[in-house]
Design a protein around this nucleic acid. Structure first.
Lengths: 253, 253
DNA sequence: GGCCTGCCTTGATCCGGATCAAGAACCGCC
DNA sequence: GGCGGTTCTTGATCCGGATCAAGGCAGGCC
C-alpha cells in the first residue's frame, strides 16, 4: 500500500516499516511480533526464532515470490511492499485471492497440499522475511507461543476468506475493501486515510469479483458523494464512517 | 449426508460410520486418523490423544452445536450426521459457510478470535467428538504428528474457502457442489453417487450464493439433461464425469 | 377428515452488473 | 519529440439470476 522508494506522491514520512529492526527487536511490525513478545525479548528462544529467518528481496513489480506448484518449504512475511496472491483456474482465468501488506504473512495455504496452490506476485518492489516451515514447526513444538501464533494466523486467514464469499452489491464490496485496506494500513503504522493503491483496477475488480469498469464507476460515484478522493492510484478517504457504514455487512466486528 | 436412523429411503447398508471404533482403533473414519497412524497405534501417545476426546450428542435437527460468540474451547469432529455452519451479518441475513460430513472438523475458525465466529447447526441427528483445544495444543507440542495434522486441517480449510469466492455461473456452482459432496461421501465410505441431501434447497442456495428458485431450476435442468436423478432430498448422480466437467473451474485438482 | 405450515417447483418480470465500444490519460521507449 | 501499449474512465446495451407470484405437495396437528 505504499511505495518503498520515495515517490514524491505520498505525503507521509518514510514510515516505520522502511527497514527491519535490529537483532534484538526484530522487524518492528513483524508478523511474529506477538509471538516474540510472548516469548519475551532477550530470551534465548527469541534468538532461535531469529535464526530460522532469512531476509529475501528485492522482488521487483511483477516478479514472483513463489509460483503455483512450487514445493512448500517456507512461509513469507512481507517486510515492505505489497503482494497479491492469485490462482489460475483450468480455463486460464486469473483469480486474485488477496493483497498483503507489510507485516502480513503469505503461503499458509501451501501447508496442506505441500505445494503452493497459488502465485504470489509483487505489486511493487518488495522485501520479505522467509521462515523455513520445517524449522518453524520444530520450534513451535518447543515454544507454545510460536505454535499458538501459527494457529492464530491460520485461523485469522480462514475468517477473512469467508468474508468475500457473501453476495453483496458492488458498492458494499468496494466500500468494505477500502475501509479494510485503510484499517490495515493504520494497523501497520501508516496513514489509514491516505494511501496508494498499489494494485491495478483490474486486480481490485478481480479480487472483488466485479468487472474493472464497475470498480471505476463505483470509485467515481464514491468521489461524487464526497466519500473519497481518488487520483489514479492515490487515495484519500474523506468519510471513513460513511464508507464503513456502506460496507458494514462485510466488515468484521 | 445420511440419516443416522434407518430411514428406509437410503439403499446403502448402515455404513462404516454408524459407530465409533473401539478404544484401540478410535473412530474408524476419524478426522484425526491420519495423526493416529503417524503416532502409531498402540503407542502410549495414542492413549493421550484418546484421553482428551469427549463424545457428545445426540444433537437433534436444528440444534446448535455451538453459537456465535460462544468462547472457543474446543473443536468438533463430526462422528455421524451433518452440520451446517453459518454467520448472521449485521443486517440479519444468514450466510451459510459450509456443510460438514462425518470425519470432518468444525470450529477451527474460532481459534483466532477466541470465540466462535459462526453458528453450527445439526441438519439431522448428529454425534461429535469434542477435542479440548488447550489440551490438544499441549499435546501437539509434544507430538509433531498431531501438530502437523492440525496445521494441515487449517490449511485445507483455507483452500476450500477460496473456492467459493470466484464468480461462476449457477450451473458451475451447482455441479461443483454436487460433485464435491459425492466425492466427500465416497471418501467417508458411503456411496459417492447416491445419497441424501440433508440440507434444504434454501441452505444450498445460501451456501452457493444463489436464490432458492435458481437451485430448484438448475436441479430440474440437470435432471432433464440426464446428469442426475432427484426426488426431494434423495439424489443419484447418473453422470459424475459430466457433472465434474461442468464444475471443473471450481473443483480442486 | 380439514387445515395449516414449511418446503419445493415453475412461470413472469425486473435489475445490477457484465460486456461491448470508444476515447482519454499516462506511461516507457525509440 | 512522436509512438505504441497499457490502464483507466465513461457511455450503451445485454443477460443471468434475483425477485415477485402462484400453485403443488407432504407432514403435523386439531
Amino acid at each position: 500500500m505504499r511505495s518503498d522508494h520515495p515517490p514524491g506522491r505520498l505525503p507521509e514520512p518514510p514510515g516505520p516499516i522502511a527497514d527491519d529492526g535490529d537483532e534484538a527487536h526484530f522487524c518492528r511490525t513483524c508478523a511474529f511480533a506477538g509471538a516474540c513478545q510472548a516469548v519475551g525479548y532477550g530470551k534465548p528462544e527469541l534468538r532461535q526464532l531469529h535464526c530460522l529467518v532469512e531476509h529475501v528481496g528485492p522482488f521487483r513489480t511483477g516478479e514472483y515470490v513463489f509460483r503455483t506448484g512450487n514445493p512448500f518449504r517456507a512461509i513469507f512475511a512481507v517486510r515492505s511492499g505489497t503482494v497479491k496472491t492469485s490462482m489460475v483456474d483450468k480455463e486460464g482465468r486469473e483469480q486474485v485471492l488477496g493483497f498483503y501488506l507489510p507485516g502480513e504473512v503469505i503461503g499458509l495455504n501451501g501447508i496442506y497440499p505441500e505445494h503452493f496452490p497459488c502465485d504470489a506476485i509483487a505489486l511493487e518492489t518488495s522485501y520479505f522475511c522467509r521462515f523455513s516451515f520445517p524449522a518453524m514447526s520444530a520450534l513451535a513444538a518447543r515454544m507454545p507461543a510460536v505454535q499458538h501464533h501459527l494457529f492464530r494466523l491460520l485461523s485469522k486467514e480462514l475468517g477473512s476468506a469467508s468474508l468475500l464469499a457473501g453476495d453483496h452489491s458492488a458498492d458494499e464490496r468496494m466500500a468494505a475493501f477500502l475501509a479494510d485496506l485503510g484499517q490495515r494500513c493504520a494497523a501497520r503504522g501508516f496513514s489509514g486515510t491516505r494511501f496508494q493503491l498499489s494494485m491495478s483496477r483490474g486486480d481490485i475488480a478481480n479480487y472483488l469479483r466485479l468487472a474493472a469498469e464497475t470498480v471505476s464507476r463505483v470509485l467515481s460515484r464514491f468521489r461524487g458523494q464526497g466519500l473519497i478522493q481518488v487520483e489514479g492510484r492515490q487515495l484519500v478517504i474523506l468519510d471513513p464512517v460513511g464508507l464503513r457504514r456502506i460496507g458494514r455487512s462485510l466488515l468484521p466486528g
